[in-house]
Each structure stands twice: as structure tokens, then as C-alpha cells.
Design a protein around this nucleic acid. Structure first.
Lengths: 224, 224
DNA sequence: TGATTGTCGATTGGATCCAATTTTATTAAG
DNA sequence: CTTAATAAAATTGGATCCAATCGACAATCA
């Protein structure tokens, strides 16, 4: 288990030990540093974080509610496994939520927002580090939804965008970065800029559903 | 604070004290027994539940992740306030998720499922107790989505359906039970039975959006 | 030989205790 | 009388300790 790097920096950035542990663990799970199925022993984690078992326990509880770990009474916590079915589940949620968020947000997007989104696309084209692409992709999407004025909806979208990051590496493995759908991103941005909500949400939904199908195909070919 | 009745029965139904506390608190919040804004003192709750403060803390953490309580460091937990904005947020999420769930579920619904849904509508017509209507309404909706085969999506839908229950009482206060949209429910069921996914999801979305507008109007008239 | 039961080790769940922080009450100054 | 500073009380965050439960392995019996 290689959490030491993540732990080393940024300890005092957090108000409470629980928040600290929770943030680092979530990061580790979403980036794949802690793969699905990894058992999370409380004492071991507590030693790594140099805290007692209690903040670890509370952090694990919160991660459980976010569906990032599975909790079994007296058995312990395990990093939620990724699977074809789970991936399809996440993408189905994204396909439902994100077009709705975009539709609400679009009328209130400013020129500066579009500039920022376009900048993020350019960054993605130039970014060599695969692990940072997920965050850029997330920020691009969230920029377009940011003006929806629905905090809960946005929190849900952000959560499932982050969860989808766990599957992003499979897209790379299967298709390479060329297929990272930059053209689709550009099409979404263009339609949004033109104020065409129907077209923008349609392209966005297709974008997400295409990614879901790619993922499904990858898993299907892998089980052979 | 009147939790004693809820606490008294059904203590040994749960495997752990944390699960027990969490279930009762969620029930109390969703039914309105604990109104929005209520501060949740750990020691006080621990005494009520006859446990120590620790299971209370873990339960509160989980409820925080479910957006039912707000947590502030060193300040404590407070039952999340209901408001026009928050209600609109929940209904926006429902309007996005539920049609998607219905569309996935519809092709796999059986005759028995439709029977069950119809039975629930009949029960709603006959039910005099307002507090049980929320659960019946929830079960009607969930019956239609149950075959979606997407556990996470269904869990999200269930969570936000339950959250919407907190606003159901306002519908009663404003419109009375006649306006409880039984005709809309019947229309959704009829379209689903006919296998018309487009019509069923359209009516469902309208159903949710109408409820959202009613709620908004009620809040608007209330602030005068 | 195979199934069942019992014991031991490991791990989590829960309780109590202490520390840190916030809030409230109090006092002093303007 | 209001306000600022400060001290005391209340409340939460974290650590340590004990109890309960689960898993594995061994011993026993059919």
C-alpha cells in the first residue's frame, strides 16, 4: 500500500483528522492507488496516517455512504470493486444527471465560462500525464454545469464524475488517448456557446453513452 | 425531542448500534419528527438511545454524507434545513433520475409488477393516515423502477424519493390530498403497461416537475 | 474420511477518558 | 449603556482501553 506520498504533504491543510483521512483515502481510491477489493484495516491505516483508529473509522463511514468502500459488520471495509455492471451503473447516472445540469446551467453561462472551458480543452490536448487528464476532464464538465444553481445536483454530478475516473484508465488501455473524445467535447462546447440547449444536451448524452458502450466492450473483450 | 417511541421498538433488529441509531435518526428526519434546523447534540442523543457517543458520531457522519444533516467542525450537527431552493434541488434530481430509471426498467416489468403498482395506488386512495402516504407513494414509484438493473441508480432514486417526503407535507398543507396527483400516477402506469416508454417517461417527468412548481408556489406564497 | 464443534488469534464495535475548540457569561473600559 | 477583552462552561474531536464477533485451524466424533 503506497499512501505515504499522499499523506506526507498537506497534513495541516485540514481542520480535522477525519477530514484529512477521508480526503486522502478518497483520492487514493479514485486514482486507483487503492484498487478495488483492497481490504482497509483500520489499525494499519491509522498507523500510516499517524492518528488513532477513530478518525479512520469515521472517514470509512463517510466513504461507505459515497459508495467508495463496502462495509460489513465485524468484517471490515473493502474498496468497492469495479466491474462492468458498476461502470454501467455510474454512466447511467451520469447520462441522466449531466444533461439536466447543463440545461439548467446553460442560460447563465458567461463568456468567461466558455473561455475557461476552452482553456481546459487545450490543456487536455497538451497534458502528457494521464493521471491529470481525469481532473481536467472533470473540471471541463463541471465548468459547463456550474451555473445550474442547484448545489445538491452539482454535488452529485461531481461525485459521479469522480467515480467515473476509476474507469478512465480502462479507456486509455483500450483505446488510447486519441479516442478521448476531444471532438465530442468541442461539439458540446460549440453548441453551448450557440445557446442551443437541445443540441448541447443531446451531444452530451451521446458523449456519455458512447463512453459507457466503449467501457462495456472493453470489459466484454477482457473476460475472454 | 420525541424520539422515545421510535427508539423503544425495534432495538434488537439491528446488528450494530451505529446502524440502529442511523436508521432511527434518518426516519425521524424524513418524517419531520426532527424538523430542519434542529441541533443534534451527541451526548443528548447518546442518552436517548442508551448508547455511548461514538455510535451517534458515526451515524451522524453517514447522515452527513446523505445530506440529511449539516456538520460543522467543533460546532456539531444540525438537521439540514428545508427551503424552496433545497426542494427545487431535490426535485431537479428526481426529474433527471427517475425517467432514466423508468426507461431502463420498463422493458423488464412483469404483469405482477403492474398489479403491485395498481394495488399501491388503490391503497393510497384508501389510506387516511397522511404520514403513510409518503411511503406508499415511494413504493409505487420504486416498483416501476425496480427492474432497471442498476443498483446505484436505484439507491440514488430511493434516497431522493425519501428526501422529497420531507416536502410532501407542504403539498398537503397547500393543496389537500385531492391534488395528490393520483390521476398522473394512473397515467404513468397506463403508459408503462402499454409499453410506451416515451409517453411514460414524459408523463413521469411532467409529474415531478408539476410537483416542483406547486412546491415553489407554496413557498413563494408563504414568504408574503 | 468427512463433517462438526471448539478454541485461539485477529479485527472491528463500543465505552470511557482527555484535549482542543467554540460559545457563553462576566468584567472592565470607553 | 454599549462594546471589547477575558474567563468559564459546554461541546466536539481524538486517543486509549475493553468487549463482542468473525475466521481459521485443530481436535473430536460419526
Amino acid at each position: 500500500m503506497d499512501l505515504t506520498e499522499l499523506i506526507a504533504r498537506g497534513r495541516p491543510r485540514f481542520r480535522t483528522a477525519t477530514a484529512f483521512v477521508e480526503a486522502i483515502l478518497r483520492e487514493a481510491i479514485l486514482t486507483g492507488a487503492l484498487p478495488g477489493g483492497t481490504p482497509l484495516r483500520q489499525e494499519e491505516l491509522a498507523a500510516s496516517f499517524a492518528v488513532s483508529r477513530m478518525p479512520v473509522r469515521e472517514a470509512l463511514r463517510q466513504l461507505e455512504a459515497q459508495a467508495l468502500v463496502d462495509f460489513a459488520p465485524h468484517k471490515g471495509a473493502v474498496v468497492t470493486d469495479i466491474s462492468a455492471a458498476d461502470g454501467a451503473d455510474h454512466y447511467a447516472i451520469r447520462a441522466a444527471l449531466e444533461p439536466a445540469a447543463l440545461r439548467l446551467s446553460l442560460p447563465h453561462l458567461t463568456a468567461a465560462d466558455f473561455e475557461r472551458a476552452e482553456g481546459l480543452l487545450a490543456e487536455m490536448d497538451a497534458e502528457p500525464d494521464q493521471s491529470r487528464l481525469g481532473e481536467l476532464n472533470r473540471r471541463f464538465h463541471l465548468t459547463l454545469y456550474a451555473r445550474a444553481g442547484r448545489p445538491r445536483l452539482l454535488a452529485l454530478v461531481e461525485q459521479h464524475l469522480a467515480a467515473a475516473d476509476r474507469y478512465l484508465r480502462f479507456h486509455f488501455a483500450a483505446l488510447g488517448r486519441d479516442r478521448m473524445a476531444q471532438d465530442e467535447h468541442a461539439a458540446i462546447l460549440a453548441a453551448a456557446r450557440a445557446g442551443d440547449a437541445d443540441e448541447a444536451t443531446r451531444v452530451l448524452r451521446t458523449h456519455i453513452e458512447t463512453a459507457a458502450r466503449d467501457l462495456e466492450r472493453f470489459f466484454a473483450s477482457r473476460t475472454d
